[in-house]
Amino acid sequence: MSIEEIVLEAEDRMEKSVTLLTDQLRGIRTGRANVGLVESVRVEYYGSFTPLKQLANLSTPEPQQILIRPFDPSVVGDIVKAIQTSDLGLTPNSDGKAVRLNIPPLSVENRKKLVGRVKDLAEEARVSIRNIRRDANKQADVEQTDKILTEDDVASCKDEIQGLTKKFEGKVNDLAERKSGEIMEF
């Protein structure tokens, strides 16, 4: 592998780690309603578990409410059941055509727990990024051993990988800070 290939593969994998963190953070409650809370709830629909966002139109008509309008009204009962069995802690209200979720305000204690969860997720993402750095550095060392890359090439490759690591760790830190700020907003 060339330096460019090693760096591109590492960058691609680090980007995927940041994307995963972004998706995970979207599902964490803040003080206001957000369709990201319920997008990934899996609903049993004709024998297979399907993400809610593929079965319904999700919206937030009010700051403290999520409205779920299924494309097929016969699935309302399944949506209600899926939300009740999820770990969201929300009680769905159904009128037979749509489901409404009222988002209660978070207590200070719950907000602090959620901020702790955000920090844990961010640390997992940082560890993932560092593991990718380690793998890329190992790949560069293997290429040097196989006489494909010179010692100087390996050093510059490791410098590029370290730069990527810092860049993506910065993105993780920014995401975590922003989400923690949203959670602690009153």
Rank of each mutant, 00 (worst) to 15 (best):
E143K: 09
L67K: 01
L164K: 05
Q65W: 00
S59K: 01
A98W: 00
N110R: 13
I6Q: 07
R42C: 07
S59W: 00
S74V: 10
N137G: 13
S2W: 02
L90H: 01
K179G: 10
Q144E: 13
S180K: 04
I83G: 10
T22P: 04
L164H: 03
N93S: 08
G170C: 11
I66N: 00
P70V: 08
E185V: 02
E39G: 07
L106M: 09
T85P: 00
V76N: 10
V154M: 09
A98H: 01
K166W: 04
D87F: 00
V38G: 02
A10D: 06
V118M: 09
V108Q: 15
I148V: 14
E11M: 12
T85H: 04
F186K: 05
L101M: 06
E4C: 11
V154L: 12
D146A: 15
S17W: 00
N57C: 03
P73I: 01
I161R: 07
E169V: 15
Q139E: 14
A155H: 11
I79R: 02
T50C: 06
Q64T: 14
I66H: 00
E123S: 11
E151I: 10
R133G: 13
I129A: 14
I129W: 07
E109C: 09
N102L: 08
V76P: 02
L106A: 08
R100V: 09
V115P: 02
P61I: 12
G163T: 13
R13Q: 13
P51H: 01
E4F: 06
T50V: 15
D120R: 04
V172Q: 06
T85Y: 02
S59M: 02
K112S: 10
I3L: 13
D146S: 14
Q64H: 07
F71E: 11
V108Y: 07
I148A: 14
D141L: 12
D146T: 11
G163C: 09
D141H: 10
L25W: 05
V108R: 12
V108C: 05
K113E: 10
R29E: 08
S86C: 09
L58Q: 07
V154R: 07
I79M: 10
F49W: 12
V43S: 03
Q84K: 12
E39L: 07
I148Q: 05
K179D: 08
E11A: 15
N102I: 06
V41L: 00
N102D: 09
T91C: 05
I6A: 12
A140G: 13
R26M: 14
K112T: 04
R42L: 15
Q84I: 13
R13K: 15
A176E: 04
P73N: 01
S94L: 02
D72S: 08
L114R: 05
F49E: 15
K167Q: 14
L149F: 05
D72E: 09
L164E: 12
R13D: 11
S180H: 03
K147H: 07
R133Y: 07
R134S: 13
L149Y: 05
E124N: 09
Q65K: 10
L114V: 08
L101C: 07
P73D: 01
